[in-house]
Amino acid sequence: MLHHIDQGAGRPVVLLHGGALDHRLWAPQIAALTRTHRVIAPDLRGHGASPTPTAPFRHVDDVAALLRDLDLGPTTVAGISLGATVAVDLALEAPELVSGLVVSGAGAGGAEFRDPATLELLARWAASEQARDRALWTEIFLEISFGVGRPLDDVAPDMVAHVRRMTDDTLDHHVPDGMPVLPTPVADAAARSRELTLPVLAIVGLLDSPDHRRMAREVARDVVEIEDAAHYPNLEAPDEFTVALLTFLRE
């Protein structure tokens, strides 16, 4: 079973973190939501305190197994970045477990990147991974996290340190040598996501890359835009993000 926190009481909500991070990404929302909801926030496989993958796997299968183990569903699932993609996958592969989706920083798996600046940065990121240049990989990851072309000096230092700490922990514990075992994608997720009929809210940081904003919007019925926030608006504008999430949960 995935390592997870299970706190609070009331209607359940599941929170899925971004790649290279863990459930601590959701710290501001966990503190707020547990006053009125039961909050389940797992560490995906290869992240946090969950197992390191050693064979082909799918994140969606792990999350579905956890929710069934906890006898949950249907429930609202919120995801950021990789977590958003896993949330959409869950609605596609196990619709009986999901009553609504909140996505931020991504959408369905398999969506294409088109923005030239983002494509160039992703190419440099892939090259740093192939070269096993951990320092460069992390710096590019932080640039993606806080806005392509945005100086990190413009971001609160404690926020950058928080994301860097989670990233370092992931790399230390799950990628100490060589390349990680990557998850198997869900087949045709982008095309299938167009047929989703459940409520979907996108919370979009307007400083995020154009592609990430578009991917979230493509699967959403409603969109909340947050200024002065990039890939993790829940950290950069926690109050605004939490209000949008709670409003969706109420409605």
Rank of each mutant, 00 (worst) to 15 (best):
A189F: 06
A108Q: 04
V77T: 10
I226E: 01
A237C: 11
H23C: 03
L67P: 07
R214W: 00
I140N: 01
A135L: 13
R214H: 03
G46R: 03
R214I: 00
H17A: 06
P176L: 07
L122K: 08
E195I: 00
L235D: 03
G46H: 08
D22H: 10
R58K: 14
P53D: 11
H162W: 14
D208L: 04
D228W: 13
V60P: 05
P95E: 11
D115N: 08
I30T: 03
V163Y: 04
D89A: 12
P183S: 14
Q130D: 13
V219W: 02
R68Q: 15
I140R: 01
A108P: 01
L21I: 11
R164I: 05
G149H: 03
A244T: 13
E129F: 12
R45K: 14
P233A: 08
V219S: 00
V200W: 02
P183L: 10
D153N: 12
L66S: 12
A78T: 11
P180H: 09
E129A: 15
P28S: 07
A41M: 09
A202F: 03
A111T: 04
E195R: 11
P12A: 08
A189T: 02
V88P: 04
H231I: 02
M179W: 12
T197E: 12
T54H: 13
V13Y: 00
P180W: 10
R38L: 07
D153Y: 07
Q29C: 05
F241I: 03
I203H: 06
L201V: 06
L198I: 14
G46Q: 05
